[in-house]
Amino acid sequence: MCLCGVEGEVRVSGHDLRTVDVAAATGYSVQQVRNLERLGVIPPAVRSANNYRHYGPVHVQALRAYRALALAAGPVAARRLLAAIRSGTLADAAAAIGEVHTGLAHERAEALRAREALRAIRAELTSYESTSYGTATSTTYETAESGDDERDSMTITELAGALRVRPSTLRFWEQEGLVRPERVTSLRARRYGLPAIRAARIVAALRGAGYGVPAVREVMDSLGRLEGPGSATYLLDRRLHDIAGRTVALLRAGADLAAVIEAR
């Protein structure tokens, strides 16, 4: 048996690895190796007469693949995928890996779509300020749009249709303080002016890109300050960078995943 190289690049030969050897080859602790075996991430170890665990190269490859998959898709999805690879057919294994690639591509497409929507909103604001003030003036997001009138407002049904969400979704965003409509008539019917409409567009873009309510709230709170939609664009740029890193991790897992599949 030989273990040589650095963490993540250790070459393993022989078929009689101890738990401590597998841990050294993968960067996990001895207890983590045992836990991941119990969770089905790696095949069960061979037990000797004295009940000691014995591992082979495939266990190291499975753990390396799991580390990269956990970064790419999350630990729960990584555990499920490795279990499916070991128990299913070759076609099932290929389909499971393809789904991770497809999921990352979808996340990237949604983030790009959201970023383009925010760029359009920023362009609208720039045009509005140029028309209203003649020269560039320091202003806030809300102040720049305070001149909207009834002709520019929308009902909740109209706005929901424009954003392709349910009216109940807009009500939820209101409850969370993300979008603030103006209420009119004795029936308290909601109407959304230009500031609320553009805020709703930003919320829809961020939610569509996968951001949770706390992150969206942080961005929306910034709209009343000087940075306006720029902070949302920065958030999406960070997400695109994260997706790129996860995609690279998935590619890095490729060789080890192939080895695990072939060893079944």
Rank of each mutant, 00 (worst) to 15 (best):
Met1Pro: 15
Cys4Met: 14
Glu7Pro: 14
Glu9Ser: 14
Glu9Val: 11
Val12Ala: 08
Gly14Val: 02
His15Ser: 15
Asp16Trp: 08
Leu17Gln: 09
Leu17Ala: 09
Thr19Leu: 05
Val20Glu: 15
Val20His: 13
Asp21Leu: 04
Ala25Val: 05
Thr26Lys: 11
Gly27Glu: 14
Gly27Val: 03
Tyr28Phe: 12
Ser29Met: 01
Val30Glu: 12
Gln31Glu: 12
Asn35Trp: 00
Leu36Tyr: 09
Arg38Pro: 08
Leu39Val: 00
Val41Asn: 04
Ile42Gly: 06
Pro43Leu: 05
Pro43Arg: 07
Ala45Thr: 01
Arg47Leu: 07
Ala49Leu: 08
Ala49Trp: 01
Tyr52Asp: 08
Arg53Ser: 07
Tyr55Pro: 10
Gly56Phe: 06
His59Met: 03
Val60Gly: 11
Leu63Asn: 12
Leu63Glu: 15
Leu63Arg: 11
Leu63Pro: 15
Arg64Val: 01
Ala65His: 03
Arg67Glu: 09
Arg67Pro: 02
Ala68Asn: 13
Ala70Trp: 00
Leu71Lys: 06
Ala77Gly: 01
Arg79Ile: 10
Arg79Glu: 15
Arg80Ala: 12
Leu82His: 09
Ala84Arg: 13
Ala84His: 13
Ser87Ile: 06
Ala91Cys: 09
Ala93Tyr: 03
Ala94Ile: 10
Glu99Thr: 07
His101Asp: 10
Gly103Pro: 14
Gly103Leu: 06
Ala105Pro: 09
His106Cys: 12
Ala111Glu: 07
Glu116Gly: 02
Glu116Leu: 10
Ala117Gln: 05
Arg119Cys: 03
Ala123Gln: 12
Thr126Lys: 07
Ser130Glu: 15
Thr131Lys: 09
Thr131Arg: 03
Gly134Gln: 02
Ala136Asn: 09
Thr140Glu: 03
Thr140Gly: 13
Tyr141Gly: 13
Glu142Gln: 06
Glu142Val: 01
Thr143Gly: 06
Ala144Glu: 03
Asp148Val: 04
Glu150His: 05
Glu150Leu: 01
Asp152Cys: 02
Asp152Lys: 00
Thr157Ile: 01
Glu158Gln: 09
Leu159Asn: 10
Leu159Ala: 14
Leu159Gln: 13
Ala160Trp: 07
Arg164Gln: 14
Arg164Glu: 09
Arg164Phe: 08
Arg164Trp: 02
Val165Pro: 15
Pro167Arg: 04
Ser168Cys: 04
Arg171Gly: 14
Glu174Thr: 05
Val179Ser: 08
Val179Asp: 01
Glu182Ser: 12
Arg183Gln: 09
Val184Trp: 05
Val184Gly: 10
Ala189Leu: 05
Leu194Trp: 03
Pro195Ile: 00
Pro195Val: 00
Ala199Ile: 00
Ala199Tyr: 01
Arg201Gln: 05
Val203Asn: 08
Arg207Ser: 15
Gly208Ser: 04
Ala209Arg: 03
Ala209Phe: 04
Gly212Lys: 03
Val213Ser: 10
Ala215Cys: 04
Ala215His: 06
Arg217Asp: 13
Asp221Glu: 14
Leu223Tyr: 04
Arg225Ser: 07
Glu227Thr: 10
Gly228Val: 06
Gly230Phe: 00
Gly230Arg: 08
Ser231Ile: 06
Tyr234Asn: 15
Arg238His: 11
Leu240Asn: 10
Asp242Ile: 02
Arg246Ile: 08
Thr247Glu: 15
Ala249Leu: 04
Arg252His: 13
Ala253Asn: 14
Gly254Met: 08
Gly254Tyr: 13
Gly254Val: 03
Ala258Gly: 15
Ala259Asn: 12
Ala263Glu: 14
Arg264Pro: 15
